[in-house]
Amino acid sequence: MMLLFDIALVAGLLTLAVHVVREPDERSAIIAFLAFGLLLGLAWIRLAAPDVALTEIAIGGGGTGILLLRAEAAVRGRGKHEESVTRPGKLAIAVGCAAISAGLGLAVLSFASPAPTLAPAAAEGLSATGLGNPVTAVLLAYRALDTLLEKVVVLLALIGVWSLAPDAAWGGVPAVRSGEIPQPLAYLARILPPFGVVIGVYMFWVGADAPGGTFQAGTVLAAMWLLVMLAGLRSPPETAGLPLRLALAGGPILFLAIAFLGFAFADGFLAYPKALAKPLILAIEAALTLSVAAALAMLVAGPARRAPTR
């Protein structure tokens, strides 16, 4: 029975993807991409990966969606079109992509039969980290270096986005609200955030033992902050302002501090003393959630537009 649902889901995904590619109008292509992101979340549920489903819908569907919608609004009519492709060119590219997909399919089908997996190793190590959710254990204990670097990647992207501001406005306030604000949006911005924050904190807290975690919670919190800014209830912060910078850098700095403490109290960098493993990880997760929320919101808000008040 579930097979039927899977086939329908895969068919839906592929048709939506083809529709996104072939759709001449930019805006509807992006809206189709939004739907594609949400369907993808279902696919991840079918692949028994709830953590990833949450991340995909929150960041892949929601975050990227609003990013692309704002981009489309800014670029409509003004964006210059690059080299258009001749018909035979498109055909050649299509054939090439088909060949790559076929090769990929062949590789996927020819995987070794007793699938090699690190699940048992992850399960053994779980007790040392004191966590219940294996994915969070991998993210924050076994491969903590990846998560640390990935957090720096997000910050670097933000610094890169900020560097695109005009010299005069650098460090100033990004333009989030555009034009007058419709009343229902203001109403929603007053009602929804409390619920959003509660859900975000809950997702971060439950992340240690059940699906949830830093990035998903951070995205929800970022969404709420964006909603408030879009509705004009709160003006976006100054990018060079101390509070924002501390919020952004706070997460990774705490992470690094605890990591360096690992030299003294545990047996090496990014190692946690056995007794304190869970509280330390939760502290890191809390700080990271705040930083992720601030970083994602600022990434969507974009570079500064108005000059800073020195």
Binding site: T64, V153, V154
Partner: peptide
Amino acid sequence: VITGIVVAFS
């Protein structure tokens, strides 16, 4: 994948 999605978003 979670790390990949966040990097792709950035």
